[in-house]
């Protein structure tokens, strides 16, 4: 595949993940505003999302979309605002993507397991 083809797909992936994030962030913020009406404690959060498969799936998709979207944006910022070699920027964005994905999914799994105990 040509360089332009790859770059076009990366660009499209960022737009599609942005669409997912627009919905996910809205649901997340709305859920939080509703949830804090009953008080914001660790126990209350765990009671709500712990062991909840729907919440875990929702936040899993949220993390996946964030892990696609943010590193592509970071790569663009690095290419435009620094003198980094494009391959180095690709590498930094790749590492960031893996970090967001691993840390995010670990948090989702952790909350899910807390409720299952």
């Amino acid at each position: 595949m040509s360089v332009e083809g790859i770059q076009s797909r990366v660009w499209l992936a960022q737009r599609l993940s942005a669409m997912v994030l627009a919905v996910a962030v809205t649901v997340h913020l709305g859920g939080m505003i509703l949830a804090v009406q009953g008080g914001l404690t660790a126990a209350e959060i765990i009671q709500r999302v712990g062991g909840n498969g729907v919440a875990a799936s929702f936040y899993g998709i949220f993390v996946l979309a964030a892990a696609v979207h943010a590193p592509i944006g970071l790569r663009t910022v690095l290419l435009e605002m620094t003198a980094l070699n494009p391959r180095v920027a690709d590498g930094v964005a790749g590492v960031f993507a893996v970090a967001v994905l691993v840390l995010g999914l670990r948090a989702v799994l952790g909350f899910y397991q807390l409720g299952a105990v």
């Binding site: 332009e4 083809g5 770059q7 076009s8 663009t76």
Partner: peptide
């Protein structure tokens, strides 16, 4: 279209 796609093109 290939000439104008990519990071240095319209995207």
């Amino acid at each position: 279209l290939r000439l104008v796609a990519g990071d240095d093109g319209c995207l």
